[in-house]
Simulated assay, not measured.
Amino acid sequence: MSTKSKLTIISILTYCAFIILALSFNFLSPAKIGITWTIFWYIAVALIIYYLRFKNLVFQEVMYYSKALGLTQTDLAKMLPNLKQSQVVPDPSKRAIIAPIFNFPLQGLDILNSKLAPMAKEKGIQPFR
């Protein structure tokens, strides 16, 4: 099973768990908070889960290519033009199940992905699945 399929299944199951909890504990009841806020929170949680799925997918792709190319955390940091002090570049040598949520932005992952994918293609590394 591909990483994209796994993350999609996990995202769907997470959203279903949220819906079950919301319905069983009745904390998003339209009678309590109104239909507008109920709809807002269901859509907001769906979008947050989609964002996290997408960020984790890009993160897994970056880690795959950086491990295959033998790059270190320092090498990845050199590829980022405007790295802030508070941003910690992920370390390819350490196993990470999920993407860093707060201390490394999606924009940094996109920059790394756009640089690593062509490098991996040149070296003949299999595309990420």
Rank of each mutant, 00 (worst) to 15 (best):
P105K: 00
A17I: 03
L69Q: 00
A120E: 00
I35Q: 07
F40A: 03
I20T: 14
F59H: 02
S114A: 11
K55L: 07
S86L: 05
F102I: 15
S24L: 09
D91K: 01
L23H: 04
P81K: 03
L83S: 13
T36E: 09
A31G: 13
L112F: 04
F18G: 12
A46V: 04
F128G: 06
V62K: 00
L57Y: 02
G70K: 00
A22F: 06
K94A: 15
L80Q: 04
E61N: 05
K6R: 04
A31K: 01
Y64Q: 11
L57M: 07
N82V: 12
F25M: 13
D110Y: 07
M63G: 11
T72S: 14
A46D: 14
Q87G: 12
I97Y: 05
A68D: 06
Y51V: 12
Q87V: 08
P30A: 08
L47W: 00
P81G: 09
I48N: 08
N103M: 11
L109N: 00
L112G: 06
P92F: 06
I49Q: 03
S93D: 14
Q85Y: 11
F54E: 10
N113P: 13
I20P: 14
A17G: 10
L47R: 01
I33P: 08
Y42S: 15
S66N: 00
T8R: 05
R129P: 14
I49N: 04
Q60S: 11
P30N: 07
F102V: 09
I101N: 05
Q126H: 08
G108L: 13
Y51D: 07
M79D: 15
K84L: 13
I111T: 02
V89M: 03
N26Q: 03
Q107P: 11
Y64N: 08
M63Y: 12
A31I: 04
Q85S: 15
A99K: 00
Y51N: 12
L71F: 12
L106K: 02
A46H: 00
N56R: 00
Q126I: 11
Q60L: 14
N113V: 10
I39K: 12
L47A: 03
F27K: 00
R53C: 15
P105E: 11
L47V: 09
L28F: 12
D75A: 05
Q126D: 12
M63V: 08
A17T: 03
I98D: 11
Q60N: 02
L71T: 04
Y51K: 05
F59G: 06
L28G: 13
K121G: 14
S11H: 02
E61G: 13
P90L: 04
